[in-house]
Amino acid sequence: MTVTDNTTNRLDSLGASGDGPSFAILDEESKREIRRALLQAVAVPGYQVPFGSREMPVARGWGSGGLQVTLAIVGPDDTVKIIDQGDDEGVNAVNLRRLVVSSTGIPETTEAREASIIQSRHRIPEDELTATQTLVLQVPVPEPLRGIERDVRELARMHAEADYSRMWVSLYEDKVRNGVITQSTGYPCLVNGRYVVATTPIPRWDIPRLHMSQFLTLFGAGREKRVYAIPPHTIVEPLTFDDVPFEVERIEGAACRLCGSTDSFLVDSSGEVDSWACSDTAWCRARRSQG
C-alpha cells in the first residue's frame, strides 16, 4: 500500500478541486480522515470504527464502503484488482474498477499476485496473498450481532463488554434445531480473542484464510459508516463449539467444468447438473493455461 503524497499543500489541493475531479475522486481531507479511521481499525483488530462515510458515485450497498477504503489508501504506484463473487468481469466489479482506474490512472490487473490492492465483494482470491498486499472487502452489514439484537445502544454495550453469550446461545439453538450450524456466509469470527466480526459475507470456504494471514484485510461498510480490520498475523476463530468442527462448503464429487479443480470454491453456474465452476475466474484461467 502506498499512501498518496499529495497532501503537501492544502491550498494546492483546494485549488486542484476547482479544475476537475481530484486524484481518486475524494478530496484530500476526506481521504486523510478515512485513513485515520483505518489506522484505528488496525490498532484494535475487529473493532468497528465509525467514520464520516461519503456519498460516492456508486450507491450505498453497492460497494461504497470498499470504494472509499480503496480510494483512501491508493497511491500512484499501486496496481488494483477488483472482483465481485470472485469474478473480475462481474458487472459491479467492472464498474468499480472503471471508477478507481479512471480517477487515479493506476494500472489494473486480474492476477491476484500482481495486485497491491484487491477490492472484493464476497470472496478472497484462491491464490495465497502476501505481506505486500491489502485486501479490501465490501461490507453490506458490519454488525455480526444484528440477528440477535436490534438496539444499537445494546449492541455497543455487548461489544464493549465482550458479552457474546447470546451469540453462543444462537449457535447452540441452531445446532439443536437443525443438527448443524446453518449460518452460511459472513460467518461470525472472534478476532484476536476480543471482538466478534461479520466476515462480509464471504463463504465459509474463505474464513480459514483470514486466520494468521500474511496480508492486511480492511473492511469498509459505507452505508453503515463503519470500517474494521484484520491485521496480518491475527488470530481469527470462527465461533463454534470445541466439539462441533467448523465446516467449509463441499460438494461430493464436484469439480470445475473448466479446469477440473476440486480444491477451489465452486459455484453452481446455471443450476443444472454438473455446471460447477470456479468462483475465482482468474485463478481458474491460470490453472487451465498451466495445463
Binding site: 457474546y164 453469550s165 447470546r166 447452540y172 463449539f241 466439539d243
Partner: peptide, 12 residues
C-alpha cells in the same frame, strides 16, 4: 447455555 457460555464453556 446462556450463563454457561458467558462463563466460558465452549463444549456443546
Amino acid at each position: 447455555a446462556d450463563p454457561l457460555t458467558a462463563a466460558g464453556v465452549r463444549s456443546f
